[in-house]
């Protein structure tokens, strides 16, 4: 990954967690923890290694020996059925496997510097992501639209500076969050709307400086946030992973 991209990850970590994180690949498993399973297969014509994130259930139904790389689409385009078989359904279906080759790398508009990313539209500077649209400086993400400086996220729209956030819209500087709308500086929050400067809030609206859904005031909030971020940063730097995430923080 380029130095600029590493810098983007480190900058985002500094903004959200209070300290930089170096070497994004070493955080790969942690960032991908709640994204789809990674699969590697060989492309149909040239047996090139292809990396997929099986984010959606239907992707597991695609025969793994019938997947095309992006550079093989033109070859696949030349294949066709026998004209004599077109007049009956039995004829078409019987021969369909001959041309049924699946590419999962949709590219549209401009794309620049997106190594190991499949599925882009008007997107630049991404890495190891899938379906990055109108996004920049995202890595290890699946399905982002108008997202910037975001890592380990799934279905992130109109958001920036997020790490491990899922199903969030219009969020800024959030960490380990799920199902948020118009929130900022939220950590381990779930199903919140218009919540800002919040820790461990769930099913809440219109809160600021809140911990466990209780407004605590700025001073107390900053004290408790410092406890959390010190722990998170220490764990991430030493273990490249964090035991707690938004999907197990409330596990009993």
């Amino acid at each position: 990954m380029s130095a600029e991209a590493e810098n983007a990850f480190s900058t985002t970590a500094r903004l959200i967690l209070g300290g930089p994180l170096e070497g994004i690949d070493s955080y790969g498993p942690w960032l991908m923890r709640h994204l789809g399973q990674e699969r590697t297969c060989n492309s149909f014509f040239h047996s090139k290694k292809l990396r997929l994130i099986l984010q959606y259930a239907f992707m597991e139904k695609i025969p793994s020996n019938r997947i095309l790389g992006f550079d093989e689409i033109k070859e696949a385009r030349q294949l066709s059925l026998q004209p004599a078989n077109l007049s009956t359904l039995k004829g078409v279906v019987g021969e369909f496997a001959k041309i049924a080759l699946f590419n999962l790398d949709m590219r549209k508009g401009e794309d620049r510097n997106n190594p190991e990313t499949i599925g882009v539209e008007d997107t630049l500077n991404t890495y190891k992501s899938q379906d990055a649209f109108n996004s920049k400086w995202v890595s290890h993400t699946s399905y982002t639209k108008f997202a910037e400086y975001s890592f380990g996220c799934y279905r992130l729209f109109y958001s920036k500076y997020c790490i491990n956030c899922y199903n969030c819209v219009k969020c800024t500087c959030c960490f380990e969050c799920d199902s948020l709308k118009e929130c900022s500086r939220a950590y381990f929050c779930h199903n919140c709307e218009n919540v800002h400067d919040a820790l461990f809030c769930s099913n809440a609206k219109n809160l600021r400086y809140a911990v466990c859904n209780v407004p605590v005031g700025k001073e107390s909030y900053e004290r408790i946030k410092a406890i959390l971020l010190t722990y998170v940063l220490t764990e991430l730097k030493s273990k490249k992973s964090l035991e707690q995430d938004i999907f197990n923080i409330g596990e009993k």
Binding site: S179, F188, H190, N191, L199, F200, S202, N203, V211, C212, N213, I224, I227, L228, Q244, I249, G250, E251, K252
Partner: peptide
Amino acid sequence: SLLTAAKENFSYC
């Protein structure tokens, strides 16, 4: 104590 409080009060919707 923070993680304990979080676990006790956190709910999923």
